[in-house]
Design a protein around this nucleic acid. Structure first.
Lengths: 226, 226
DNA sequence: CGCCGGCTTGAGAGCAATCAAAGTAAGTGG
DNA sequence: CCACTTACTTTGATTGCTCTCAAGCCGGCG
């Protein structure tokens, strides 16, 4: 994490998808003064499961993954979160801890908002309340979808999905992701992932050069997942 | 659903786990006047996926399941919710629909709260806000756990878990649940469930008479899931 | 009695995890 | 520049779990 950026919300490129959009004048200023804009590099950890939840984060740009510790050494991947979402809402509970670990899978810009500030906004503005409820419900809906996919779909379909999602958050190109990470996101093993990719390679759906995956035929990939 | 009950929150047995607990005098009265106490029988549907989300429900007593429609005829089981939880929080979004179907697996008593009322409470009381955030976070944490279990554990472990959960919500006894439903809750098939139960029967962990399952050795069942 | 719904049991097939070994690319130091 | 290390990927073989299909069983009810 580099040192915080000085950005005025008024000139922020992401203000329209942020809570800023729904606030009135004085509340806007409260947010503007209180928020902290941070940049993180790919791989960095924004917060760790079990640590004190003090802030939530509005993700402006980039994508990250939430995961949970397990008894084994490998963390269990929960879900991806991308631009326009809010993470770390555990902070809205008093004295509670983050339930998951948030780690960047691309470079990220996000706004940290303390729960104290959020609560002042909520008290002043019904719209802020609605915004938060929307964020919560959106996240839950996301988890429903993810749960359904993980429980009902075959490994190669999940892998195809992961590729498409990564393509989307990477704005049309896959940041050179390791097979191991792709496997984790798809909820399968390195070997299975490797085999699935090989099959896609022979079907001319993807190509791999320099350990970098390129999507050749997005439509075929989409057909894969129906 | 039978006709609403007339219960004063003041004398409600569940008030201590409800939002009532955190409210001040006048807000308490607002809740008391506005809430509607409903009773549902096992199997009844409280709300259906896709229908307009107008109320959320505080579950006083009993247990229910949330599920989502699928392309196949079988709905996909999402998670169980029990006493002390709030469901249907989709209603806090304006003009949105329920994301899942809520169906009772035991008889249920619950309080219906309109989003309009919830919002008035939130505006008046920071504690009400915290209560709701807590409900949301609790639910999400539940989904995390469920996701992890469904993705990483074997069928027989999931079945053992389901039995324990049902035992808990049934206050020590399993309402005579059908194998098919137990299978759905465990995310597996009738046959696999039947086989797992047979094995438990030979190990004297459970007994079955008249299609009713009895837990003989709760400790062994717990060892099962570690 | 015969039928029906739900449960049980068996056999077979398929998917994906695991174990094992070889291959490949990038980086390091002489 | 080359040999060597290291990290990661690929491929193969095996195993085990669970699904599916199929047949039979059990208890209740008309």
């Amino acid at each position: 994490m580099t040192s915080p950026l000085q950005i005025d919300c008024k000139s922020c490129a992401y203000k329209s998808s942020c809570i800023y959009e729904v606030l009135k004048g004085s509340e806007k200023e409260l947010l503007n003064k209180g928020k902290v804009v941070n940049e993180y590099r790919k791989g960095e950890i924004i917060y760790k499961e079990g640590s004190a939840a003090t802030s939530c984060f509005f993700v402006q740009e980039g994508a990250l993954k939430l995961s949970k510790e397990t008894l084994s050494d490998k963390p269990f991947f929960i879900t991806l979160r991308k631009s326009g979402t809010t993470i770390g809402m555990e902070s809205l509970n008093n004295h509670s801890n983050y339930e998951s670990t948030a780690q960047c899978i691309t470079d990220i810009t996000c706004c940290a908002l303390t729960s104290r500030m959020i609560y002042s906004l909520i008290q002043k503005s019904r719209a802020a309340c609605s915004f938060l409820a929307f964020q919560y419900n959106d996240f839950i809906s996301d988890l429903y979808t993810h749960l359904t996919i993980m429980s009902t779909e075959k490994a190669n379909v999940r892998i195809a999905r992961s590729l498409l999602t990564l393509l989307e958050v990477g704005k049309g190109k896959l940041a050179n992701i390791r097979i191991e990470d792709l496997a984790a996101i798809s909820g399968t093993t390195r070997e299975t992932t490797s085999r699935a990719l090989s099959r896609m390679k022979t079907n001319k759906i993807i190509s791999v050069s320099n350990r970098e995956i390129n999507i050749l035929d997005e439509q075929k990939l989409k057909n894969f997942i129906q």
